[in-house]
Design a protein around this nucleic acid. Structure first.
Length: 868
RNA sequence: GCCGGUAUGGCGGAACUGGUAGACGCGACGGACUCAAAAUCCGUUACUCGAAAGGGUGUGUGGGUUCGAUUCCCUCUACCGGCACCA
């Protein structure tokens, strides 16, 4: 053993051992409980970023810990390899997305390996491989057969200059990112998956996901958005035919307060009214050009225009004007809403703006209604109906019941459940994705590619130029024969949403080598994923799509599981400081924190920062997620080279709890490295002081009190660390506890043989407790301590109950809730004894000032509160 | 805008089930070792009154429940994540 801790040498030694033993390969073993630990697979963007390192460290710590608990652990890794960045890189560098992607994968794989993750690389997969995505295509065809997949038009962002569809992130302030041209909405045919058929199932099953974070379940439930309300039909006549304008409302109790209806720009009624109304037609065009993003819709100015058409109130027969509103969503309900300005804030604003009448129909207690200004209580559900004829005096639910019943009798409405969840549009007008296996035949229509012709292979050499999908220009791809009639036909050139790729990869990891089936029995062995770990940003879409896809596979009899992820951990983001300077031209230049020196005052308060290169000040803009644009990224590889993987792992796990954001700090890494060196040195000094006289632990009765204290500290730490890693899944506190134990050990100066035996026991526990977090160094230290077995496979240690026994414990005493004194009582003391000891304490008596105790609260083993 | 979350010393965080607020680490300050530096080690470090003993205040804001609130409830503020074509 070397005196100095040399991470590069230590890590190479440990890795060589694991590699020789093929230590991370997992195989199905029905005799042991399985544990499938999965981290969200990365997009191969080029280099690992710190978010990846954090994610995979958490997964690795849990995997290694569970392995030591006796589980048969699977921890695989793969690549979410299709997607937009590869096309952007291709445009920037002229390199085909395939080459860029595969190069990135090769580099990032080496990075992952250098961090010592216990990954089974034999199961590696990339979603851009035909062997993988053929099963996307195969399942899509099964969905078509079952009617789960279908075709309808959808709205996309259209760049009129580049003649191409843009992703939301390519639209900046309503303009195309490359051309700067105002983006238009355009309707095109697309394929959709009927996730809405599963709404109730996806919602109900959230209750079974008890090991998911509550907030993720809440977000999913809100996303699915079940709302129970009433469908109301407003009758009207058009060209001598009877029609009804149908709206959905959760506030049918306010039906008598309707003063207008509003329809979406795409609604048939709007189209009809615009035929001989140029102004309206222009307004509708304007609405259609606007954003398709919900977030922008919500903050934009509410605008409307009357259609000149009227519908009849279903209960009163009153004429109600119909407006077109830019805030009405064609995709929710039936693209029309009823306007009750008196009791809906949005309608209120709309009515004020356009001078529409406001009719109060709900009253609450003594509150006075004024049409001058909106007040919170106007939208209350606690009030009663007024100005509503026969419904006057009814409360929210009774009014809805009565009105729904009357509407039903008239055939103009009924109670209805409405969902916010929309079907999943999977068509993307992009090159670097999984081809949708369809052929468009002029005679037969849309014909599925026969299973025997799968996969439809994506040609790999193309380089997109930003003007549409290159597949649409590649005759050798799109020219084909109709599989049904043999006529000349055109292959579909849209590819699938990359969320399809990531909706089932976790099942393929069980059997990545099966060329004949999507999944096999091995998926039933490993599924469900016991622990899934990934960013909170995936809380809704990826997780919901995966839950849906797994259900479809279950319905098709492909897998036994219906819920893919038993337990979920959503890790927080990794942030770093942002430093900038305004340049002469009013632009902002960003500097990497590694190139900046920070100045502190005598108290340690941050005073300012200067750029190391020129010594001049730079502005601190706070902390944000690491990104290229803010130049605040940290390269994991450079750090591994400087400090070793173990120090990086230790820092990441120590700095913050896994679910919180993590603020990067170079000093923190330095601190972690310092701890590693200290651990190394302490073991080195212990071992070089010579072998112990006896390998037997000393009898408890012969221990000195200092020896007993150290043993108790060591075993109490083991109890805490076991609980933190196993039950709480919180690592920073576990590491802090081990650090504390090391501090205690540092103060233990007993060099007798018996004292050194206790030191040895403590060090062995420390090495074992840290082994999931810093596996390389502990692997070598374990050998140094004289062991020949591989630490990775050694069972997790068990605390010695005898070491934990305490004779007396300290109890705090409060007087009137304020901490005043400490008392020592026997560990076996009962409540009465504790109370009497507390009341007899001179400090307590002084604070009681001779007054009698009104009440004495005793919390056993902790606290006494005397109330006078 | 809607949905979800977060807020504790100079900083990251701890306090797990309502029971000693600030564990552990970073930074800062003082000291030891050294020709010197690095490394290492020791000590101090929420604010405040006090020579000390000891006291007071304090967990984003304002209120509430309780013997007792960082923890539970309500209000407000600031920041972060998602909003369906970034992954």
């Amino acid at each position: 053993m070397h005196e100095r801790y040399d991470p590069a040498a230590v890590e190479a030694q440990a890795r060589a051992h694991w590699e020789a033993a093929d230590a991370f390969a997992a195989s199905e073993d029905p005799s042991r409980p399985k544990y499938y630990c999965l981290c969200m697979f990365p997009y191969p963007s080029g280099r690992l970023h710190m978010g990846h390192v954090r994610n995979y460290t958490i997964g690795d710590v849990l995997s290694r810990f569970m392995r030591k608990q006796g589980y048969n652990v699977l921890q695989p890794m793969g690549w979410d390899a299709f997607g937009l960045p590869a096309e952007n890189a291709a445009m920037a560098n002229g390199v085909p997305p395939a080459k860029w992607t595969y190069d990135n994968i090769a580099y990032m794989k080496r990075q992952l390996q250098s961090l010592g993750f216990a990954l089974d690389w034999k199961r590696e997969l990339a979603t851009c491989q035909p062997e993988y995505y053929r099963w996307n295509q195969w399942l899509f065809l099964r969905m078509l057969e079952k009617g789960i997949a279908y075709k309808k038009t959808g709205v996309v962002n259209w760049d009129p200059v580049d003649q191409t569809v843009l992703a939301n992130e390519q639209v900046i302030d309503g303009r195309g990112w490359r051309t700067g041209a105002p983006v238009e909405k355009r309707e095109i045919p697309m394929y959709y998956l009927r996730i809405t058929d599963y709404s109730q199932d996806l919602l109900d099953a959230l209750d079974t996901l008890t090991d998911w974070p509550e907030r993720v379940r809440t977000m999913q439930a809100n996303w699915i958005g079940k709302s129970e309300g009433v469908r109301v039909g407003f009758p009207y006549e058009l060209e001598d035919e009877h029609h009804t304008l149908n709206v959905f409302t959760t506030r049918a109790d306010t039906l008598m307060g309707v003063t207008f209806c509003a329809v979406a720009a795409e609604h048939a009624l709007a189209t009809y009214a615009a035929r001989d109304n140029d102004k309206l037609a222009a307004f509708i065009e304007e609405c259609k050009k606007g954003t398709a993003q919900e977030a922008e819709m919500a903050v934009m100015e509410k605008k409307g225009m009357p259609t000149g058409l009227f519908v009849l109130h279903p209960l009163t027969g009153q004429k109600i004007p119909v407006w077109v509103g830019n805030y009405v969503l064609m995709t929710y309900g039936e693209g029309a809403v009823m306007g009750v300005p008196a009791h809906d804030e949005r309608d209120f604003e709309f009515a004020k703006k356009y001078g529409l009448p406001i009719a109060q129909v709900i009253a609450e207690d003594a509150n006075v209604y004024s049409t001058d200004q909106w007040a919170e209580w106007y939208s209350t559900k606690e009030g009663i109906c007024i100005n509503s004829g026969k419904y006057d005096g009814l409360g929210y639910q009774h009014a809805i019941d009565a009105i729904a019943a009357d509407l039903s009798a008239l055939g103009l409405g009924h109670k209805q459940v409405q969902w916010r969840l929309r079907d999943w549009g999977i068509s993307r007008q992009r090159y670097w994705g999984c081809p949708i296996p369809l052929i468009h035949c002029p005679k037969c229509g849309d014909v599925p590619v026969p299973d025997k012709d799968l996969p439809v292979v994506l040609p790999e050499g193309l380089v997109p130029d930003g003007s549409g999908n290159p597949l649409g220009k590649l005759a050798s791809f799109y020219e084909c024969k109709c599989p049904r009639c043999g006529a000349d036909a055109r292959r579909e050139t849209d590819t699938m949403d990359t969320f399809v790729d990531s909706s089932w990869y976790f099942m393929r990891f069980a059997c990545p080598d099966n060329a004949n089936a999507m999944v096999d029995e091995r998926a039933n062995y490993w599924m469900p994923v016991d622990q899934y770990i990934g960013g909170i940003e995936h809380a809704i879409l990826h997780l919901l799509y995966s839950r849906f896809w797994t259900r479809v596979m279950n319905d098709l009899g492909l897998v036994k599981e219906r819920e893919p992820f038993r337990r979920l951990l959503t890790q927080g983001m990794v942030l770093n400081d942002i430093y900038s300077r305004k340049t002469g031209e009013g632009r902002i230049q960003y500097f990497n924190p590694a190139d900046v020196d920070v100045q502190f005052d005598a108290k340690g308060t941050r005073l300012g920062a200067t750029l190391r290169a020129d010594g001049k000040p730079v502005e601190w803009e706070g902390m944000r997620t690491m990104s290229k644009s803010k130049n605040n990224g940290v390269d994991p590889q450079a750090l591994v080279g400087e400090y070793g993987a173990d120090s990086i792992r230790l820092f990441m796990m120590f700095k913050a709890p896994p679910e919180d954001t993590l603020e990067w700090s170079d000093d923190g890494v330095e601190g972690a490295s310092r701890f590693m060196r200290k651990l190394w040195r302490v073991v080195y000094e212990h071992v070089s002081a010579g072998p112990l006289a006896s390998s037997q632990p000393p009898a408890a009765s012969s221990l000195t009190s200092a020896q007993r204290d150290l043993r108790r500290a060591a075993h109490a730490t083991l109890v805490k660390v076991t609980d933190d890693l196993g039950r709480r899944r919180i690592f920073n506190t576990a590491i802090a506890a081990v650090m504390e134990l090391m501090n205690t050990l540092g103060k233990f100066e007993d060099t007798t043989d018996q004292g050194r035996t206790v030191v040895r026991e403590t060090l062995e526990l420390v090495v074992q407790m840290l082994s999931p977090i810093v596996p390389h160094a502990t692997h070598v230290l374990w050998e140094t301590l004289g062991h020949t077995d591989s630490l990775m496979d050694r069972a997790w240690p068990k605390p010695d109950p005898e070491a934990l026994v305490q004779d007396s414990i300290q109890v705090v005493v409060q007087v009137n809730g304020k901490l005043r004194s400490h008392i020592n009582v026997a560990a076996s003391a009962d409540e009465t004894q504790i109370r009497e000891t507390a009341l007899a304490d001179p400090v307590v008596q002084r604070w009681m000032e001779g007054k009698p105790a009104k009440k004495v609260i005793v919390v056993k083993g902790k606290l006494v509160n005397v109330v006078v």
